[in-house]
């Protein structure tokens, strides 16, 4: 049975890793705002090089971070250039490919969208790779996020790998019993139901016991809760978080001033 949580966190002893989870969240939030609100076609790429890459390098995770970004971005970027580049209605052709042609406007749009998308996914990946999920949830629950949400997030990370394993076991078992999982669409669709049933019903029976186990451990108790895990915060980081928030608001303000189409 798998005991690794469903998370791509990479433990490292870096300055980035040691930051308070909220500081990391603020950094990633700022990067996300840059991706979503920077105007023009190329500024997001500049932000990727000047903000995301240095942070990933500081965290010592570049060799695993870059392939992950590429793997996620590639299908979207390829699709973008194909769909919007080749089929832009009434665009100016710049390059002919048989009956199709690449349009100037489509390519510009694809470049702009790809930059935005890459910033969005690399921000999230940066957070995932450098932040312990339990530390992040603890920081959030200290700042008003309900404890139950923290429970749900962390429990999910540990349950998912077990369900993936269970799903594969059920798939193999059904196949060895002669269930057809290849063939036409209808056959494959019909194969799905015997797979879903044991997965859902089997786990539903366990839910009662898991709820009882939580109640026994005073999960439902009101009043202040404490934590074994310690978070280290510094006044400097608090200042940085406020500055990042202001900078994010400034970027949004700038974009609104320029107009959303800019």
């Amino acid at each position: 049975m798998s005991s690794t949580p469903f998370s791509l966190y990479i433990p490292r002893d870096s300055g980035m890793h040691r930051l308070h989870p909220l500081t990391k969240l603020a950094l990633v939030g700022f990067a996300l705002i840059l991706g979503l609100f920077l105007p023009g076609d190329w500024l997001t790429y500049l932000a990727f090089v000047l903000v995301i890459l240095p942070l990933a390098a500081w965290a010592g995770i570049l060799p695993r971070f870059l392939p992950a970004v590429l793997k996620t971005a590639l299908p979207i970027v390829v699709s973008l250039f194909l769909v919007q580049g080749l089929f832009w209605p009434g665009g100016t052709p710049i390059f002919h490919l048989g009956p199709l042609s690449l349009k100037q406007e489509g390519v510009t749009f694809a470049i702009r969208s790809a930059g935005r998308f890459i910033m969005v996914i690399s921000s999230f990946l940066l957070l995932t790779f450098t932040t312990r999920p339990d530390g992040l949830m603890l920081a959030l629950s200290r700042h008003g996020v309900p404890n139950s949400i923290a429970y749900v997030m962390l429990a999910t990370l540990q349950i998912v790998p077990r369900f993936q394993a269970k799903a594969n076991t059920i798939l193999d078992a059904q196949r060895s019993r002669g269930l057809e999982t290849e063939g036409n669409l209808f056959i494959r669709l019909r194969a799905l139901f015997p797979l879903i049933q044991p997965l859902l019903l089997g786990s539903i029976v366990d839910i009662e016991e898991r709820a009882i186990a939580l109640e026994v451990r005073a999960f439902g108790r009101a009043g202040p809760k404490t934590s074994l895990l310690m978070l280290h915060d510094t006044p400097a980081q608090r200042v940085v978080r406020w500055l990042l928030l202001l900078a994010s608001l400034a970027i949004i303000g700038w974009r609104v001033y320029l107009g959303l189409a800019a």
Partner: peptide, 29 residues
């Protein structure tokens, strides 16, 4: 939002992900 609902949520999400990947394995559109 009883405890049993809260316990159900992670299981539901795991079901989303596990079945989502199963569907992907079976190459269903």
């Amino acid at each position: 939002f009883s405890t049993i609902s809260l316990v159900m949520i992670p299981v539901a999400i795991a079901i989303n992900i596990a079945i989502g990947q199963l569907v992907y394995t079976l190459k269903l559109p």
